[in-house]
Amino acid sequence: MNRLLRQLHLFEEIFSAFQAAFPDDPLTVQAMPIDETFVTLAPEHIHEACEILVERFDFYHLSTITGLDTGAAVELFYHFWNAYGITLRTALPYTALRIATLTDFIPGAAFYERELYTMLGVVFEGHVNLQPLLQPDDWDGSHPLRKT
């Protein structure tokens, strides 16, 4: 129970930090099963939110970045972990599939971003080596996980 209380407390702090940083963003928070919390943000705030998570709350571990084509938009999920999981989610419209890279302060994100770039066509601005990760040399540029 102690663990659960600590978790609640921590996420209240994180949430208020986000609210202070992005007053105009309609933040939503969802508690998910298996110790996970989802926070929805606007795409332009993701980079700063990640920085707040890593620098202020020591969520040093970026588990992965999930990309998902819902048919209406491309959703991105940044899964962080430090004893509890927290996921920042955002949705990119098809017209602007661009988002700031995290590799400037989390070099470990490089492969995830490269994979998303090839699988879904999301361009990570500022990534130093945005090359295909899994595709062959004669990759035709199509994105396997896109619905359209």
Binding site: M32, P33, I34, F38, S63, F77, H79, W81, G85
Partner: peptide, 8 residues
């Protein structure tokens, strides 16, 4: 049922 989950 519809929903999403992160499993570690």
């Amino acid at each position: 049922p519809a929903g999403e989950v992160v499993s570690r």
